[in-house]
């Protein structure tokens, strides 16, 4: 995903963006402008049973990209957070 995101440049068309990243998860109308959201969520869950006591933990992180377009469907801004690989198997008491 990082390679595709880095290939997006200001001024690119929405066609170019969908060519690189595929169909967006969400399209938001911002007046005459639009924004596309792309995301990938990684969740890792762990559990520990000790006879009558159970501990469960779930950790979710995302690769998330927002692409902002002007009224001519040209890219004006791109914001990316690539943290999907930060999800960890852990116990509920760990930070």
């Amino acid at each position: 995903m990082a390679t595709s995101v880095n290939a997006i440049e200001v001024g690119d068309s929405s066609e170019r963006v969908t060519e690189l990243l595929g169909a967006p998860t969400e399209v938001v109308q911002l007046g005459t402008r639009t924004a596309y959201r792309y995301d990938f969520t990684e969740t890792k869950s762990a559990g520990l049973f000790l006879l009558v006591v159970g501990f469960f933990n779930s950790d979710s992180h995302q690769d998330r990209v927002w692409v902002f377009f002007d009224e001519n469907e040209s890219v004006t801004h791109v914001g990316a957070t690539l943290a999907g690989d930060q999800a960890e198997y852990s116990m509920p008491w760990s930070d």
Binding site: V52, V53, N57, S60, W93
Partner: peptide, 17 residues
Amino acid sequence: TLSSCLSANFNRSKELE
């Protein structure tokens, strides 16, 4: 405890950064 009449659980869920 042996008859499993007592049970406890602790759950935690963390989302995003």
